[in-house]
Amino acid sequence: MTISVRVFDTILDERKLKDTVSRNSADFWKPFCKSAGWTFSHERIHSFADLKYLMSRKIKEDVIIFSGHGMEDGFYLSNGDMLNQEAIESILGEIPSKNHGKIIIFSSCYMGKSAGLCQSLKDYFGARTLFAYQHLMADRFCFLFESILLSSIEQAWSKKEAFSLKDFEDFKTNTSFMKNMNEEKVKKHPMLMF
């Protein structure tokens, strides 16, 4: 079984908050997925309205990557909306069950530091698994970790197995040498699995 990836992109450069087009992680993921033999699609996501609309449609891809700015308290959309506990509880409404069972990756800084938020987001999306970073992360290192992670998931799936916590621990062991490439003196692997 091969991987299929959908990327939801938000803004990149916080100095240009009105710039909603320069961030484009599709520039990495589209050729990477093509070379891996995976299917790929890409959407811009600027607001809660966009998120509600996009999640109301059937998403065929197995993996959804939210690419943008994050903090311990949530994931920022281009217009400043924050995907957080409050938004889940009072603004967004339910995700249709047709989009449950996905692998969700928050390709953003610090969200993994809040296990409660990550677990709430996993439950909200009805995700099979959710991955998030607990450190400051540059895009290029996110791409590196995530491409290896998805390749590891594909390897498990090719054996008709689920990607387990043991598989994730193996992934962390195999990529531990990279943990200080992004930031010095990092003691823990940057990525967490929920």
Rank of each mutant, 00 (worst) to 15 (best):
F141V: 08
D139V: 03
M137G: 12
Y133A: 15
E94V: 12
G101F: 14
H135C: 02
D167W: 08
F106E: 10
S90L: 03
L144R: 12
L121N: 03
L136E: 09
I153S: 06
T129E: 03
S151Q: 11
R140M: 04
F131L: 08
L130A: 12
L92C: 05
L165W: 00
G126I: 01
S158N: 11
S90N: 11
C109H: 04
G93V: 06
K122N: 10
L130C: 09
K113V: 05
Y133H: 14
A127F: 08
H135M: 00
D139K: 02
F163M: 11
S120H: 09
S120M: 11
I153E: 08
A115R: 15
M111L: 14
F145C: 08
K102Y: 13
L121M: 13
Y110S: 02
S97V: 15
F141I: 13
S164R: 02
M111V: 05
C142H: 09
H135V: 04
F125D: 02
L121G: 01
A115Q: 10
C109R: 03
L165M: 04
H135D: 01
Y124E: 12
S114N: 15
F168K: 04
S158F: 06
Q134N: 11
G126C: 00
R128F: 09
S152K: 14
A138Y: 14
S164A: 03
K159F: 14
N99Y: 11
E154A: 14
S114W: 05
Y133C: 13
H100M: 04
S151A: 13
M111W: 00
S114P: 06
A156W: 03
Q119R: 11
T129H: 07
S151C: 05
L149C: 00
I95N: 07
F131D: 00
A138V: 05
Q155R: 15
K98W: 06
I153Q: 04
S108M: 06
M137K: 13
I103H: 10
A115G: 05
Q119I: 04
T129L: 10
G116P: 04
Q119N: 07
K113I: 07
R140W: 06
K113H: 01
F141K: 11
F141R: 13
E146W: 07
C118G: 09
M111T: 06
G93S: 04
A127H: 05
L149M: 02
G112Q: 06
K122Y: 01
L92G: 09
E154H: 12
Y133D: 10
Y133N: 15
F168Y: 06
K166H: 11
R128P: 01
